[in-house]
Design a protein around this nucleic acid. Sequence first.
DNA 1: ACTTGCTTTAGACAATGTCTATTGTAGGAT
DNA 2: ATCCTACAATAGACATTGTCTAAAGCAAGT
Lengths: 124, 124
Amino acid sequence: MTAQRRVVAEVLDGEHVHLTADEVHARAVAKLPEISRATVYNTLGELVSLGEVLEVSTDQRAKRYDPNAHRPHHHLVCAQCGAIRDVHPVGNPLADLPDSERFGFTVSDVEVTYRGVCPNCAAA
Amino acid sequence: MTAQRRVVAEVLDGEHVHLTADEVHARAVAKLPEISRATVYNTLGELVSLGEVLEVSTDQRAKRYDPNAHRPHHHLVCAQCGAIRDVHPVGNPLADLPDSERFGFTVSDVEVTYRGVCPNCAAA
DNA sequence: ACTTGCTTTAGACAATGTCTATTGTAGGAT
DNA sequence: ATCCTACAATAGACATTGTCTAAAGCAAGT
């Protein structure tokens, strides 16, 4: 555990939002000016491997990092401003995929992304 | 309808797979050598706007283009080789998101991505 | 103090996508 | 038939995001 890794972990802990790698880097630099982009990427990759952080890609731009890795959840995204909320749908989508639709795959995971318009954007 | 647009449409029609923009470009160049990358991107963008083609991003690399836009479906992705199958789960995931989990959003769409290992990769 | 091995750094590189300025082209107006 | 206008296509620069590499730093054990 180096100073750099501690800073990256602090940034993710402190924010309850879904930051991109660059946003994590910007906030990390504010706390530790000499931290490099590569270190942020490396550390984020390690945190993902350790299962401490989830990688989500709700738009096709940058990956976002979700510190809420220990409670399974899905995402609700505003199509206009990109705001992201964690959501917990009822039911288990894995059970909704019949064997006949699995094509011999061993299905282990499912990712659900709801899209819509958030109250802010609807008001504007 | 120009020659370039016809070629892009033909490429998507002829292939039942999920091509990246670059793969579309490569196949288009084979049919019409002087077609440019920008034209392929523009045409794909137009087809998406027209609702003729769906944009899917199952990995965080390139977007893929799915000509099967008129039958709603979701995707099953091999975590190892990236193979993609269209699947049709039973039930409606939109109904699985209670009002209390919508945070005032107007939810209009849901995208479900199943992940697993395909038979080929499981055998290897 | 020296060695060994991991970490960090800076910057080059790669992949994907967008933008701009220029050129081409097609169809109507004269 | 020629010209004008508007849209389309092109080449290439540029932007963003991410990965890789070579060099330097640092820490722990000998």
